Simulated assay, not measured.
Amino acid sequence: MKKLIMIFMLVIFAGVLTACGASGNEEGQASNEKETTSKEKKVLVMGTSADYPPFEFVQTSQGEDIIGFDIDLANAIAEKLDYEIEIKDIDFSGLIPALQSNKIDFVLSSMTPTEERKENVDFSQIYYEANHMIVSPTESNIGKIEELEGKTVGVQLASIQADKAEEIKENVDITIESRNRIPELVQEMKAGRFDAAIIEDTVAKGYLDKNEDLTGFVIENAEEAGTAAAFPKNSELVEEFDQAITELKESGELEEMIKKWFDSEESQ
């Protein structure tokens, strides 16, 4: 009887040890899982207005993904900084408010760092420069700013082109109308409701190539409108993005992206 009791106790003790070992393994496994999770790349939420080819747009014939120069640039920066990017399509006028309310981490949407915008957000260094273009129906024969007298001119809401229109209005009597998206400006011209629109030249080129009934000219002596990434005030990302953009410039990768999107059929 004593032998049986001893054997029974040994069996129970062995079972307890086995259970403890299993528990330890589970804890170790959980610890490893946590460590793996902590090593996953941080996700940055990027805001953009996907109506601005070749910077950011959706080419429906190829799918629903947002593509373009700014998207390639964002992915290249993220790869250098070891981030993942999640993209949100937001009307251009809503991008800065989204930054201010921390709904997004940064903006890459061909945004010009004007003094007014700098009061509300911080910017990276300039990564691309372009000019303003007056676009109009070919039959209108508008070939210079003075010929906008008495005309209705469309601009994208909250864009640098809207500021340019206000500047023109100081010397030429024009009516300024705003729309959220560039395609809306084009449609308004085609419908005869706008006499002209002010659009960034690299973006306008794509529309002119597709629409023979539209023409345009670059505003003479216009200052180049540089574009930069935007961030909430005092964001640590500014310095990181500046470093990555500098590296992309020095390596020639940024120039390759520019050639891809502005000198090829992909930009159309």
Rank of each mutant, 00 (worst) to 15 (best):
L81K: 04
L108K: 04
S136D: 08
E40M: 15
L81S: 03
E116T: 11
S136R: 01
E86S: 10
M133C: 10
I96E: 04
T37H: 07
I126A: 04
K118Q: 15
G28H: 04
I85P: 02
Y127C: 03
T60M: 09
R117S: 11
V107T: 03
H132K: 12
P53W: 10
E119C: 07
T112H: 10
D91L: 14
M46E: 13
E79W: 05
N141C: 09
Q62G: 04
I145P: 06
A78K: 03
D91E: 13
V58T: 11
L108S: 13
E139C: 04
R117P: 08
Q29A: 12
V107D: 02
V121G: 02
L108W: 01
L73C: 00
Y52I: 02
I87T: 10
K103Q: 11
A30F: 11
M111F: 14
A50I: 03
N120E: 15
S124G: 04
Q100Y: 07
F69P: 01
T138P: 07
S109N: 06
Y127M: 03
S31L: 15
R117W: 05
A78D: 06
F123P: 06
D70G: 08
A130Q: 06
E84D: 05
S136Q: 07
A74Y: 02
I90K: 02
S140M: 15
K144I: 02
K88I: 06
S38I: 13
E129R: 09
K144H: 04
D89K: 00
F69V: 05
I134F: 12
K88Q: 09
N32C: 12
K80P: 04
T114H: 00
I142F: 11
F123I: 05
E116C: 10
N32Y: 10
L73P: 00
A130P: 02
E79N: 02
P54M: 09
E119Y: 07
T37S: 13
D91V: 13
D105H: 06
T112S: 13
K80Q: 10
D122S: 14
